[in-house]
Design a protein around this nucleic acid. Structure first.
Lengths: 202, 202
DNA sequence: TAGAGTTGACAACGTTCGTAGTCAATTGAG
DNA sequence: CTCAATTGACTACGAACGTTGTCAACTCTA
């Protein structure tokens, strides 16, 4: 069989390798979500994970591959949270907006490191900004769904861009401690923004 | 007298020193406004400016001091442009919004390097993100002026944050080529956003 | 013309980084 | 027990960076 070459300390090789990869990912999330993006170097990750550089290159080819993996994990989680929220919400726009925004706020505030990775890391990290769209993808579903589709394409593009920027800046400010409002008020304001975006096309 | 120790090649020392400083600032603006922030290293700036590192440290104590100087020059220019635009506009909100936004769009699009320095560089560059507010200051005047001041403080904060984020993301997307609309439509949309921000507090 | 101010090309120091390699110690399989 | 798989501590290399220093060449003043 492939994998599980031999058991060691009660676990198989592939298990331990996976555990190390997970440990590296968690450590990188911690570093990337706490302080500057330049702080997450191969050496720093290995030191904090108490692993040797060898095990780094066992799981990742590059430093960039690690950064990308961390980011995509968080993006996937956010995307799943949004999809679930929309599915389990009522059919009307207000209900959808409320549960989507709430889900996102919950995700970002329950583990601020993820919020920072999602919103603040991409511009900082070349490996992420090379992805182009950056933080837009997981927002896209939410935004497009809310936008009336009879309006002009350019208007829709601009409205989506503006909405994403507004939400991202709000969350960023909240994460940074600049915005001194309660979580509920933040959520309510975001819902109002999402619903108001449609109203712009009058 | 202080300065002008001696004339050299037709100009005084202080003149030449100022010229070198200006050349370094221009070169840094070019590098910071074209490509990643990491590309603007002391060596790179000096190479492109055809100056020696010695003259770098003649005008700037640090690499950070150069970055800061470039950023603040652009911020000052933007601030002046906004103040002038507001002063020379009509007294009503729509007129103020239109000329403010137009002035900003003109500044950012006539020299995209300045736009990128203003909007994209701060998150990238630790020397700039340490300033905290980042790109908010020059927007603040515009935003606060437009916001009805009877609404709750937290709401005003959130609305201002959202508006700044929306505008910044729109300009960023436009600069990055993602937004395929005409300059006039972009301006019009931004004006609508600024005016619509008030309407949110119903 | 002699000497001081000024310039430019370049080397040097110490640090950090990404990445790869060495080697003794530990651990389980036969 | 023996040996190979596996681990961990450590070193090594080349590159880039910020920063400082060296030194010959040029240009003006006296």
């Amino acid at each position: 069989m492939a994998g599980a070459a031999r058991t060691w300390a009660g676990t198989t090789l592939t298990d331990r390798k996976a555990a190390r990869r997970r440990l590296l990912l968690d450590t990188a999330l911690d570093l990337l979500g706490t302080g500057s993006g330049a702080a997450v170097s191969v050496r720093a990750v290995c030191r904090q994970a108490k692993l040797t550089e060898r095990y780094f290159y066992e799981s990742f080819a590059d430093r960039d591959e690690l950064i990308l993996a961390v980011y995509e994990e968080v993006v996937d989680e956010a995307h799943r949270a949004l999809v679930d929220a929309v599915r389990s919400s009522g059919p009307d726009a207000r209900s959808r907006a409320e549960s989507s925004v709430s889900a996102f706020v919950k995700l970002i505030l329950d583990d601020p490191r993820k919020g920072r990775v999602l919103l603040l890391a991409p511009p900082t990290e070349p490996a992420l900004s090379r992805l182009g769209v950056q933080r837009l993808p997981m927002f896209a579903a939410l935004v497009r769904e809310q936008l009336a589709d009879k309006v002009d394409e350019g208007d829709r593009e601009m409205t989506a861009t503006a909405l994403v920027g507004a939400l991202a800046n709000l969350f960023s400010a909240y994460l940074g401690g600049t915005l001194r409002v309660s979580r509920d008020r933040l959520t309510a304001h975001c819902v109002r923004l999402v619903l108001g975006a449609n109203a712009l096309h009058s």
